[in-house]
């Protein structure tokens, strides 16, 4: 799947959890990705994140190790 789409979708998820109260936003982004994205999509995101680090939302970056 094209990297811009996966990263855009992940950043979009982060944009919601960023607004939520509490300190566990990264965990919640990770939980959402695990609940709704299959392992192949998560692996692809991780893979693409390596070469497109700059495009990632900070919250996605923090969530990646948790998925």
């Amino acid at each position: 799947m094209s990297h811009d789409k996966l990263i855009r979708m992940a950043n979009q998820i982060a944009s919601f959890f960023k607004t939520q109260p509490g300190r566990d936003q990264a965990e919640r982004v990770a939980a959402h990705l695990k609940d709704f994205w299959g392992p192949e999509m998560r692996a692809a995101l991780k893979d693409q994140a390596k070469s497109h680090e700059a495009e990632l939302d900070d919250l996605v970056r923090r969530a990646l190790p948790l998925i």
Binding site: M1, K5, F36, W37, G38, P39, E40, M41
Partner: peptide
């Protein structure tokens, strides 16, 4: 593990 949603199927 969750599977693919329609847009994900088409992307894949």
């Amino acid at each position: 593990e969750p599977g693919l949603r329609i847009p994900n199927m088409l992307d894949a």
